[in-house]
């Protein structure tokens, strides 16, 4: 292979710099799956399915406005946090194992520099958001928790998109806007959660699968 044109060389350099420094081992199907998990989990709470355990039905709206018996509210709040945490953990496990599998197939170490850069840029805003949400819970501002998770997650996606799929930026802005709308219309948080985390991830996962994984 001999040198031909300087333009081609610059193109080759740019292409390799970009491909080698970006983390692209997220599996589209795994993202799609996490979207389904979020969709199911959030609908479960939003449409008040399966709350006969408490014998009294309490809607998400009643919960965030603290309108109801304290012990029932407490129970539902705990259930909501447990479901949300379960979804998060299940999603992270799915993403981790599929990413490991994908990088194994391509002969690339998962914990390379692009991976750690992506993780760092994603989790700095995400963990800050998590801590902030704990304070919201502490001050009983339940209505702002779901919007806040959307906003901070959006910020995390925007910041890590530089080191991974650039399309993550669009998803980030979507989550951000949804979070702001949900903050204004307090009480609609979960509905926007369903759109942002559920439908957003399903569409994004499908897009990544079609565009990158199939090749």
């Amino acid at each position: 292979m001999k040198n031909s044109k300087p333009e081609n060389d610059i193109g080759l350099i740019k292409d390799l710099m970009e491909r080698s420094s970006k983390f692209s081992n997220i599996s589209g199907i795994a993202v799609l799956f996490t979207g389904f998990l979020a969709l199911i989990g959030a609908s479960f709470i939003y449409f008040d399915i399966g709350f006969s355990v408490s014998e009294v039905h309490i809607s998400y709206n009643q919960l965030i406005s603290q309108n109801g018996k304290p012990d029932v509210l407490n129970l539902k709040l705990k259930l909501l946090i447990s479901i949300a945490s379960l979804i998060l953990i299940a999603s992270l496990i799915t993403l981790y194992f599929t990413a490991r599998n994908k990088s194994g197939k391509e002969g690339i170490a998962l914990f390379n520099s692009s991976f750690s850069r992506t993780l760092k840029s994603l989790f700095t805003p995400l963990l800050s958001g998590g801590v902030f949400c704990l304070f919201l819970l502490h001050h009983q501002m339940y209505g702002l928790v779901a919007p806040a998770t959307l906003i901070f997650y959006g910020l995390g996606l925007i910041s890590c998109s530089k080191f991974s799929y650039y399309e993550l930026e669009f998803l980030g802005y979507l989550e951000l806007v949804l979070g702001f709308i949900a903050s204004y219309f307090m009480g609609t948080g979960l509905l926007f959660w369903i759109i942002g985390f559920g439908i957003g991830h399903i569409l994004f996962g499908y897009y990544i699968h079609i565009k990158y994984d199939k090749k």
Binding site: K2, N3, D9, L16, M17, E106, G107
Partner: peptide, 28 residues
Amino acid sequence: FDSRVRLGLMSILIVNQWVSYKEIKNLL
């Protein structure tokens, strides 16, 4: 850097710290 392989190899190493043989082989 006359060869495109060497040019590509350098491009990868310039933006990354310690890249494995297998990774380079796949990228190129």
